[in-house]
Every structure is written in C-alpha cells, then in structure tokens.
Design a protein around this nucleic acid. Structure first.
Lengths: 245, 245
DNA sequence: GCAACTTATTGTTGGACCACAATGGGAGTC
DNA sequence: GACTCCCATTGTGGTCCAACAATAAGTTGC
C-alpha cells in the first residue's frame, strides 16, 4: 500500500515537471513517437502496456490519451494488434461537426460563408492564370454531375468540381483546407441535393461559372459564384424551423 | 474475487445489449442528458460518479466518454465542481487543425495568398455591416503600432489589427483559422518588420484601409488591402526556412 | 474578516477480469 | 512423412474496481 502511494507521488512529480496534465503529456509523447518513428497510415503503435512504460503513465492514463488521439481520427484501435495509424479524418471531422451541430446551428452557415469568400476570392487568380485546358477539364468534371446514380455520387461530383476549382488557385494551404473540410462540405452538398434534387440546375450554375472563366470575366465569375453558393445556403436547415426545439 | 468477475460479466452483458461500445454508449447518454436537461454554456454536468450510475458504466468508462466530449470542446472539467458546458469550439477546431494539417509545409507565399483572399474577400461584408464604432476601434488598434517598443510588439499589434478586421466578418470558422495560423502570421510579420522596420508605413497602409471602410468604398478597400498584403510579401525570403523547425 | 479545516470532486494509478483474435502445437488423415 | 484441422495458449484492447493525490469550494473557529 505504501509503495503504491510512493509510485503515485513520483509520477505526479514527473508530471508536474513535464507538463500540465498527465494525459496531455502522454498524448504529446505518443504523437512525438509517431513523428519520431515516421509511422504512416497502416502502421501500428506499441501496445497500451508498452506505451504505459514508454510514457511513464499508467495504462488508464494512456488510454485516455489514446482516446483523445482517436477522437482526432488519427488512430483506430484494432483488437489483438494495437492502435493502427488511420486516415480517419473524414469520420472524425464529421463526428466533430455533428457534435457541434446540436449546439450551434450557425456552423453550416459559417462554412458556406467561408467557402464563398474563398471561391469568389480565387476568381481573379484563376481568370488570369488558368489555361484553357484546365477550364475544359472543369467542364468535363461538371458534365459528370448529371450522370450521377445517387445523391451521394452527385454530391461527390459536385465537390470534385469545387475542389478542382480551388486547385487552380495554386495554393497549397487552400487545397489542404478544402481536403480537411471535405467531409463537412460533402455533407452540406448531400443535404442540399436531398432537399432539392435537381442536378441539372447545379450543372447549369457551374456551366455559367465556367463560361465566365472562358470569357476571362472576373466580375461575372464573382457574381455567379457568389449567387451559386448563396443559393445552396438557402436550402440548408439553418432556420429554426422545428418548434420542438 | 469471484464477485468481481460476476459484476464484470453482468456489465459486459448489459453493454452488448445496449450498443456497440460502452464508451460510445456512455457518451451518447451524456449528450442526450445535456439535450434533455437543456443545459447551456456555463451549466454543470453531474459528477462522474453520478454519471457512472446514470449510464450504468464504470467511472473509468465515463471518463473516457467525457474525454471524447471534451476533445470536441463541448465541456471543460473543473476540479471540485464537475464538467462545465463550455463554448470551446474555437480551441477544439484549432486542435483539429493542428492534428491534421501541417502548416510548416505551406510556404509563406501560400499563407500570404490565403490571407489576401480572405482579407480582401471579407471587404464586402465589412463595408456593408460594420458599425462606425467598430471601425473606430480598428483605428485605435492601428494607432498602437507606432508606439511599439520592439519588433515583436509591432508584429503583434499588426496582427491584432488584421485579426480584428477578420473578426468583423462575423464568421467563426474564419476567426478560428486566424487564431490557428497566428504563430505563422506573426512570424511572417516579424520577418517583414526586421527587413524593413518602418512602422509608420504599416500604420499608414492600415489607415488607408480604414478610410476606405469609413467611406464604405468596397473597391478602394479591395485594392488597398490587396496592395498592402502583396507589399508585405515582397520582403519575404523566397524559400521559407524549414530548417528552423 | 480571515485563516484553518472539512469535504466533495476530478486526476491518476495499479490491478483485475473478459472477449476476441492470432498463433502454434498436437492429433488425425492421406 | 507431409498435410490438415482443431483446440489450447497467448496477447491485446475493453471494462471495471478500489484506492490515493490534488484541488478548490464550503465551513468553522478565532
């Protein structure tokens, strides 16, 4: 019993010297480990008991740290094997936003507002620098929307169009952010198409935007893109329509 | 010892009957509880032991569930009080970005390009919606730049100006991103001021932007902001010093 | 009014058990 | 003898429990 408290005290001392919280410290250690060993998707982490030894924390603490990392979608536990480095970004972000949608419904509008600023803002660069081939490629992607067999597929094609557009901005930060936000944007698009499944309209709106690019008309592009994104926003459940809430 | 295993088996049975994972089930129960009791920001959750009784899971399981919710930024634990419903979306989003995005790979030029799209893009909204008081507040922040004692302080004041500007866009996603990017942006500003430490110029450029806002002149704002950010870019090194990390 | 004490709560630990999957060895078969 | 199948063993995550430490709110004594 007394050695129990002794060990506890030592660990507490180590914790206070290290960081603010034992769980946070352990999480940091584990993330450092992933970086140091250059682990990639599919690789496995040491077992919880080994991590417990490595980090100097108890297995319970390690588990809480892993739970945090897991919530970020970076790892996925696999029984008998260990935690596997995962590409669970999509699910994690969806869960993240799902947890927040209950609290604040403004998030959807914020994301759409963000998109509008970005996609309108990149117009100047695209109009000036995009090659004709790139614009034609956009047209090709756009054509796939009406061929979609399901709403999900349509949303994916829709997203591909916008992602390709953002790619023309030639800015890594932007493309990274769009990849990061892709699950949420896809979800917004899916909801929009469920409520108003007229794929031809989406294609036509995109077509107008492409036409503005072909004509190298910045003002037309800004106007059309802005209208296009505003229009999508109108069909989102942003209004507190449900009285039960 | 045998009653120990008996309890464990019962709980496992209860778990399998309930859902997929005890932790997930507990997290769902807790979120339901928050919704059912209509808890708002600032309200406190029941204690872990009470939640343990409510959910039928052990305190350890409850803790892992709370850790998940906490990672989402919905609650914040307070010793002796309990978990408090928090508005920690900002920090949670920042952590998500930190976990998933590698800013260091983006070049300074990319980040400045991103900034230009954002800060020019929000012009319309600001020109239309900002109150005179908000614009005057911007002016006040801007005035502090020339009083700065050090380059770091000047960079910080510079950043504060741009952050306040972005805040006027009234979009949480944007402000969160700027908070997240703040270290990088600050670094860019510091470098810029080291190379060309004429604080009066920065203040003057900001002043012109503020004047455009006062006049509610979108075009002038877009032009001046674009020029301002482009100008900063000119003094940055071509290749970001990735070795410092 | 302030300081010391009490107490309730989270934070952390170590230990235990269960379910499950992989592994390997042994028995049986060709 | 080689191959196959079955089953025990083993190791891992998932869950639970009991205890102690740290902390801060509340209480009491002066």
């Amino acid at each position: 019993m007394s050695e129990n408290s002794q060990v506890a005290r030592d660990n507490v001392v180590a914790r206070r010297a290290g960081g603010s919280s034992a769980v946070d410290a352990a999480a940091g250690r584990i993330l450092d480990l992933i970086r140091a060993r250059r682990l990639n998707v599919g690789d496995v982490l040491p077992t919880e008991r080994e991590l417990s030894e490595i980090t100097g924390a108890s297995r319970n603490t390690v588990r809480e740290a892993l739970r945090t990392i897991r919530t970020y979608g970076l790892i996925e536990p696999k029984p008998r094997v260990g935690a596997v480095l995962a590409d669970g970004q999509s699910i994690a972000i969806q869960n993240f936003f799902a947890a927040h949608m209950d609290v604040s419904r403004s998030s959807f509008a914020d994301i759409q507002g963000f998109r509008r600023i970005i996609e309108v803002g990149i117009g100047d660069h695209i109009v000036l620098n995009a090659t004709n081939e790139q614009i034609e490629a956009l047209d090709e992607i756009n054509a796939r929307i009406v061929d979609s067999r399901s709403i999900e597929e349509a949303a994916e094609n829709d997203f591909n169009f916008h992602m390709a557009l953002v790619g023309l901005a030639d800015n890594r930060m932007l493309t990274d952010m769009y990849s990061f936000l892709s699950p949420v944007i896809l979800r917004i698009m899916t909801i929009g198409k469920e409520m108003r499944p007229v794929l031809a309209d989406t294609r036509a709106a995109h077509g107008e935007i492409i036409a503005a690019l072909r004509a190298r008309d910045r003002l037309a592009y800004a106007y059309l893109m802005s209208r296009h994104l505003d229009f999508a926003l109108r069909f989102l459940p942003e209004e507190p329509a449900s009285e039960s809430d």
